[in-house]
Structures are given as C-alpha cells and as structure tokens.
Amino acid sequence: MTSHPILSLENIYAGYSHISILKGVSLSLHSGQVYALLGPNGGGKSTALKVCSGQIKPNSGELKIAGRSMQHATPDALARAGLCTIPEGKGIFPNLTVHENLVMMTNTGIALEEIKTIAYERFPQLSTRSTQLAGTLSGGEQQMLSMSRALATKPAILLLDELSMGLAPIIVKQLYEIVAQIAEEGIAVLVVEQFARTVLGVADTAGIMLNGQLLAEGLPTEIQHLLTSAYLGIKPNTL
C-alpha cells in the first residue's frame, strides 16, 4: 500500500441543489484496497460515490485523484482517465445489444477486440448472447456485462454502487469474488453497499455512513458490531 491515496475526499459538502446531503465527509482509498461504504438508505453513501465519479459537484471540499484536485472534471473525462463507475441498478444500456454495450466501452481507449476477448473469456455465456438486447438478459447476466467493463477497461479505480441490488445471494457472492480479483491486480475499489455482510468478507476497510457523515471507519471486524444497530434503529449517539 503506497502512502499517497489514489482517491480521496476531503471535507466534502455536497447534495442536490441547496439541500446538503454530505456534511463534511473525508475518506481515502489506496491502490489495491477494497473500501466498503455501508449504512442504511438515505445516509449519503451513493452521494459520496457520485462525488467521486464526478456526477455531483461538491458545494465545498476537495476530490483528489492521485493527489490532484479533480472536483471540476466531468464524469466522462474521469472515466477516460481510468475511473470506472458501475452505477446503481444495472450499468448497462438495455436497448443496445451485448455487443453494442461492449462497443460503448471502447470510449476508454481500449480496442474492441481486446474488450471482447476479456469479457467473453471471463463470462462465456455473454458471448453466446452477443446479439441479444442487454435489457432482456437475466439480472445476473446484466451485472456480469457491467462488470466486464471493470475487467476489460483496466481502470485504476473502480467505484461500485449497490452491486447486489435485486440479485440472488449466490450471484452476489460470485460478483464479489471478481471484485476481490480485480483488487488483487492493484486496483482501488470503493464499494457502496446496503447489504453489508456480503461485502465485509472482501473489504479491507469499511466505513458506516449515517446522516451524511462517516460514523465509523476501520477494519471490517472492528465495525461489524455496529451494523445491526445502525440499520435497525438504535440512535447513533447511543452507540
């Protein structure tokens, strides 16, 4: 682990129009690290991730990538620079075929042939459906397609928003195995996840967000005991 974080948020205040959702969030992420951001809905996890991906401009505070201030960069510029974001829901174009979805990944500068090789090798069942509309795939297959982007475009940072939403536990498990592999290649991974248990096995660091603030941060084992209370309604100050 290098001393300089590849991605960091410094005292971020952000939200939609004048409503602040994040109230002073700081966190940092190193190469090869899997950081799991947990917490109940409405806590600000997704907002924090969108600040990282450039989709929400912070009202104040700094987004730094490899030490450089990046809060003014557009999401597409960040994506081309090596930041791969898989948004909540399925990160695919439902009315495009599987093949065309892969074509869209070439915007990051990787050749289509290479993308196809990597994607179809890792997920052989996608290659048999290359002319099928992505929206007609099963939930698991759709998530595989969006994960192919993380694999094939060789990003430096991977942001995952609610990867497991609407998927059967067995598939979620498989997906997180892939995430672990990606991290082993030295990629920094930020996972936002409501279903905490699934991700704790993979993560090196975990943070719990509540009411727009980072309530606790530490090794998964350290914060595990806080989860139940954070999710099922014991007030934060009694923790």
């Binding site: 898989i86 948004p87 495009l96």
Partner: peptide, 27 residues
Amino acid sequence: LFNTRAGVAMRAVVDNRELVQLNGGRP
C-alpha cells in the same frame, strides 16, 4: 445507428445519458 460506433453512441445517449459519460463517452 446500428453498425457504426457513433450511431451506437447516439442510441446509448437515448438510453442513459449519464451512463454514456461513465463509459467515457461524450454525449
């Protein structure tokens, strides 16, 4: 619209503009 990269990008924008950006495309 179906066989060129530019056309696919146009259809992708219709589908999900934000995701095009996350793919590094320029809507």
